[in-house]
Design a protein around this nucleic acid. Structure first.
Length: 420
RNA sequence: CGGGGCGUAGUAUACCGGUAGUACGUCUGGUUUGGGACCAGAUAGACCGAGUUCGAUUCUCGGCGCCCCGACCA
């Protein structure tokens, strides 16, 4: 992508109505555009980030047997009344058409997926099954806040699994938990699985996946020795207590942001929709159901919050909209410009995603924009680097500058996965 | 939903009961070119409605919108 053709531009100042770091930086860098409180559009750079997050989530869900579908987002009100959510869940949007028929838009999809699963998973031989989608969700929040971290419209991966037994559900949960931790790790985040309350429709514990960040809405206690972690809202312990799991570590308290959760839904929805399968004995049985969520847009916000520095965003290589920011300090030197065009073309030929700052702007402005946008590697091309026959490469995360040959450059930026 | 704050060019801000100034951006011309450069010129603005007033962007009321704290958070 040539930056001179990228229709978004950077800004020096954030709009005054945005306070959160994620929204300020993402707006200043041209990743998102605010439509109203809690609703954002994703511009070319932002859309590429979302796509990268989605790809990683998709790969990990597929790896544990998830099957991707795409459910409707406009829903009839009937299934929502059938489960009680229409009256009991306050964030459900209620829409009335001109014929006075009532609809809602999906804030979660149990009401849609359960009947779909029931139509096909009719035998114990069909179980277990895990169905997921990645898509827009809508919640009538009284107060949207924190930029893209808590919106009225957002993107979420929601997976629903159906099982014969609690044991099988527990097995799948353990696999899903590992898959979730792989997702966060690949996104360059450190997440902890915590115990939390079960929400509106289950008394069982749920598990939340939390990333430590001061922008978080939750307070957690975590052990400094083992992996134990709990939400303070359900914990009977306090900061400084000895960990009750390993009896060695001490609990620390921190702010964290929820980036995923799992609920054991039991047979509630299967009962509501009278969904059953036939077991070996030929009896009709309600499947045990679980739901697994990952907030895609929230993850984008959390990554910004957790990794940005005073100069701007710092994207992990796995989610960056482009791997390389090729910054040309070219002036009106035609020969130099042709040389830079050639470097841009060969990077693209190697399959490396590159944003080429070919704009007619001064160096300081280009460097500042480059820091703000936060691509993992900045490759500077100037009269100096051309004469020396090497590329000046600056790693955004560390600021480390190296001068590399063409081959060394390709080997540094060639791989896609996060290097740590 | 309770409490608080704020609505002025694209963005950030200033002043004022007598129709608005600055910076950045954008456009034109010129000089520049390794950390947001300079000169000259141009462009563009009072959220909506009602009231008070000779006159309202300014004061009052209502609406709408946005932000923050809390509550809530499938």
């Amino acid at each position: 992508m040539r930056q001179s053709r990228l229709f978004t531009k950077t800004r020096k100042e954030a709009p005054k109505d945005e306070v959160s770091k994620n929204a300020q930086l993402l707006i200043r860098a041209g990743f998102i555009h605010k439509e109203m409180a809690g609703v954002y559009s994703y511009l070319p750079l932002g859309r590429r980030v979302l796509e990268n997050i989605e790809r990683i989530v998709r790969e990990e869900m597929d790896a544990i047997g998830g099957q991707e579908i795409r459910m409707a987002t406009l829903h009839p009100s009937e299934p929502w009344k059938q489960t009680g959510a229409w009256d009991n869940v306050d964030v459900v949007f209620k829409i009335q058409s001109r014929t006075e028929k009532e609809y809602t838009v999906g804030q979660s999809e149990e009401e849609i997926v359960t009947p779909i699963a029931g139509e096909y998973a009719t035998s114990y031989k069909d179980l277990p099954v895990a169905i997921y989608q990645i898509g827009q969700k809508y919640r009538d929040e009284l107060r949207a806040k924190s930029g893209i971290m808590r919106g009225r419209e957002f993107s979420m991966k929601d997976m629903y699994s159906f099982h014969e037994t609690q044991e099988d559900f527990d097995r799948f949960y353990a696999e899903a938990k590992e898959a979730y931790l792989r997702v966060y790790s690949r996104l360059g985040l450190v997440a902890k699985a915590t115990e939390a309350s079960g929400g509106a429709f289950t008394k069982k514990l749920s598990y939340e996946f939390m990333v430590l960040t001061d922008a978080g809405e939750d307070d957690i206690l975590y052990c400094d020795t083992c992996s134990y972690c709990t939400n303070v809202e359900v914990s009977t312990q306090n900061e400084g207590d000895e960990c009750t799991r390993c009896n060695q570590g001490v609990l620390s308290r921190a702010k964290a942001s929820e980036v995923g959760n799992i609920f054991d839904l039991g047979t509630k929805y299967a009962q509501d929709f009278n969904v059953t399968y036939k077991n070996k004995e030929g009896e009709s049985v309600h499947p045990i159901m679980g739901c697994f969520g990952i907030g895609i847009t929230r993850l984008m916000g959390v990554i910004v919050e957790a990794l940005a520095d005073e100069k701007g965003i710092v994207w992990p290589t796995t989610v960056a909209p482009f791997k390389v920011h090729l910054v040309g300090l070219l002036g009106d030197d035609t020969e130099l410009r042709e040389y830079a065009d050639g470097v841009y073309a060969s990077l693209k030929d190697k399959g490396i995603e590159v944003l080429f700052d070919d704009r007619d702007a001064r160096p300081g402005e280009k460097f500042a924009d480059s820091d703000l946008i936060g691509l993992p590697y900045r490759v500077v091309i100037s009269k100096k680097t051309k004469e020396e026959g090497r590329f000046e490469v600056v790693e955004r995360k560390t600021g480390v500058v190296t001068f590399l040959s063409e081959e060394e450059l390709y080997s540094m930026v060639g791989g896609r996965e996060y290097q740590g």
